[in-house]
């Protein structure tokens, strides 16, 4: 069943920057899609149109068959509650404790008067803590976010998204600030959750080895245009060279396949 459809979606930023050019694609429920492309190709823009952090200039985006480009404010919030997002820089509140960061994922499900008083229902606290256990850092619940390592912080980011109990997870370069072993650990977490919970997952990456290793389906963007869309098994270096418009260098590889024991814990 299709969960996400793009129909001729274009985005023009102020200054006449065409970041997306008539992109059309369909994503099925439970798919694990990796979007690759050079920096500036429009990967973030594509991802952000899904939850309308970026408004499409033209075209239609459907989630579960419903056109989301015309939602009003209230409907938009409701729709966003169903979509988890993971960021390159984690976007945690550094000075807040881990549970509080994860509970933020429950905000849109709890009545505002309760969130203003910090009185989350027991059920939501349970959801937050079990989300943390899912990414294997349950014991860090009471630690300040900035006392964690980068990999642990990104797992808190994943837990926050999980706490939303989302239909879709969007991950914008989730491992770009991490070292190779941690990158693999985080990608594995994303992949595992995708399989266990059947959450449709879109991940932006610019490392082709990670894309090949973890992607089921790969979408290639170049200068805002969709230039490749196919299963990861069909992708080889030639295809990447076409997407990137140049030959592949070492910088395009994350490298390392071993998960560091420290990060495994």
């Amino acid at each position: 069943m299709e969960i996400l459809e793009f129909e001729n979606v274009s985005v023009v930023y102020p200054g006449n920057v065409e970041a997306l050019k008539k992109v059309s694609l369909t994503i099925k429920e439970g798919e694990f899609v990796v979007i690759v492309g050079l920096s500036g190709a429009g990967k973030s823009t594509l991802l952000r149109t899904v939850n309308r952090l970026v408004e499409p200039t033209e075209g239609i985006i459907r989630i579960g068959g419903r056109d989301i480009t015309k939602l009003n404010k209230k409907e938009l919030k409701k729709m966003r509650a169903q979509i988890g997002m993971i960021f390159q820089n984690f976007n945690l509140v550094n000075r807040s404790r881990v549970v509080r960061n994860v509970l933020a994922g429950r905000l849109s499900y709890v009545p505002t008067w309760r969130t203003m008083l910090g009185m989350f229902p027991l059920k939501d606290k349970e959801i937050a803590l079990s989300a943390l256990e899912r990414v294997r850092i349950g014991e860090k619940a009471n630690v300040r976010a900035d006392h964690l390592s980068g990999g642990q912080q990104q797992r808190v980011g994943i837990a926050r998204a999980l706490a939303q109990q989302p239909q879709i997870i969007l991950a914008d370069e989730p491992v770009a600030s991490l070292d190779p072993p941690t990158s693999h650990a985080v990608m594995k977490d994303l992949r595992r959750i995708n399989k266990e919970d059947n959450i449709t997952t879109l991940v932006n990456l610019h490392f082709i080895d990670l894309a090949q290793e973890y992607g089921e389906r790969i979408i290639g963007l170049r200068d805002g245009e969709l230039v490749f869309d196919g299963p990861a098994s069909e992708v080889d270096e030639g295809v990447f060279e076409e997407i990137y418009g140049r030959s592949i260098t070492d910088d395009d590889l994350r490298g390392g396949t071993q998960v560091a024991p420290r990060e495994e814990g």
């Binding site: 979509i83 976007n91 509140v93 000075r95």
Partner: peptide
């Protein structure tokens, strides 16, 4: 840091919640 604000907006929080959970804890100390 605008990051947490962006994260909460992306998850459908309203303005009051963004203020209390993303801005307030950053500035209070």
């Amino acid at each position: 840091d605008r990051g947490p604000i962006e994260a909460l907006e992306a998850s459908g929080s309203n303005r009051a919640e963004v203020f209390l959970y993303a801005i307030f804890p950053q500035v209070l100390p």
